[in-house]
Amino acid sequence: MNVTSAIEIRTEDTTLLPATRIVDEYEARDVSAHPLFVSLRENPVDLRAIWFLVANTHAGISPHFVRWLAQTIARIDDRRIASLMAKQLNDELGNGDCKKIHSDLLDRFVTGLDGWRPRDARGDVLRPGKRLGERSTALFEAEDPYEAVGALIVAEIFAKKMDRCLGDEIRRQSAISPDALAWLTIHEVLEVDHAEDSGALAALVKERGPSLAATWRGAIAQWAALWEFLDGVAALALPRKAAQAHGHGGE
């Protein structure tokens, strides 16, 4: 049973599970089971679909992630949590090497896929990414900064799983320049470390009270936003039948 489905998140709720259970819950979910990745695995490499995924990831994350982390670090009341988040912010900014800033490397990845960008696509092909950015911004700027903590905990777990799926597809082809793949190469390793940090962050959240409730709220809402992001990419990138075969939150 989904441990979050039977509980109502209330500030005064004394039965809420510890934040460490957030990690248990979402580590158990299988991102590779999403129809987007199932379809990619079962068919020849589809770099057009990969463009949709990478370009929307860029649109949803790159303009915002540094700000999300920096604002939360400034607002959070626990310096231990701030320290862990500062470590991730430093990674995002290239550890002092401006040539390794992650948003710039992701720019390069999108550019490297430009040859497979759909020229006949209709509507806003970056809609899933923009929607993810809006929903995540609302969590990272919520009144209680612990919503941002919960959002970050599950976002890093999700990113580890998604990057692994993306890496599996990229390793099936040789058409993309290795230089364009630096972002993915770094992230497949780094997101494992960041997902481990999620456990450390969760262990620092108080086991009762408003901060725990806010952490759960942020985690639940962020995972839903990320899963719906994949739904949106699938709807654009896959044949209609595959795109409509949505899963249920990675359970």
Score class of each variant (00 low, 15 high):
92 E>W: 07
121 A>Q: 12
65 F>W: 14
108 R>D: 11
57 T>I: 06
35 P>N: 14
64 H>F: 13
71 Q>H: 05
158 F>P: 00
135 R>C: 06
121 A>P: 13
142 A>M: 09
48 R>I: 10
85 M>I: 06
134 E>F: 12
139 L>S: 04
133 G>H: 00
132 L>K: 12
73 I>F: 08
63 P>V: 10
85 M>D: 01
114 D>Y: 01
58 H>S: 07
164 R>G: 11
98 C>Q: 10
102 H>W: 08
132 L>M: 14
160 K>E: 15
37 F>W: 13
131 R>K: 14
138 A>F: 03
166 L>Y: 02
65 F>V: 12
118 P>S: 11
66 V>I: 09
40 L>W: 11
138 A>R: 09
148 A>C: 09
158 F>S: 00
58 H>E: 07
134 E>S: 13
91 D>R: 13
109 F>Y: 03
108 R>Y: 05
135 R>A: 07
108 R>I: 03
140 F>T: 07
155 A>W: 04
167 G>V: 01
76 I>W: 02
59 A>L: 11
44 P>R: 15
155 A>S: 11
124 D>N: 14
150 G>Q: 04
100 K>L: 06
129 G>D: 15
163 D>L: 02
94 G>V: 10
95 N>Q: 01
78 D>Q: 06
148 A>T: 01
120 D>R: 08
74 A>G: 03
115 G>Y: 03
104 D>W: 05
45 V>S: 14
89 L>I: 05
124 D>V: 12
84 L>W: 03
165 C>Q: 02
159 A>G: 08
123 G>C: 13
129 G>M: 15
123 G>D: 14
82 A>W: 08
97 D>H: 02
116 W>H: 11
162 M>Q: 08
118 P>D: 06
60 G>I: 13
79 R>I: 10
79 R>L: 08
67 R>K: 11
120 D>E: 12
160 K>S: 15
97 D>C: 03
100 K>H: 00
47 L>F: 11
144 D>T: 13
86 A>M: 07
156 E>L: 07
152 L>Y: 04
76 I>P: 01
166 L>Q: 02
42 E>G: 15
129 G>V: 14
75 R>Q: 09
142 A>D: 10
158 F>D: 00
149 V>C: 04
52 F>P: 06
151 A>P: 02
129 G>A: 14
97 D>K: 05
156 E>K: 01
64 H>S: 06
131 R>W: 09
45 V>C: 12
118 P>I: 03
48 R>W: 12
82 A>T: 03
130 K>H: 06
159 A>D: 14
58 H>A: 11
66 V>S: 11
119 R>C: 01
94 G>W: 07
95 N>Y: 06
145 P>L: 00
121 A>Y: 05
54 V>Y: 00
42 E>H: 14
95 N>C: 01
57 T>R: 08
108 R>N: 09
68 W>I: 02
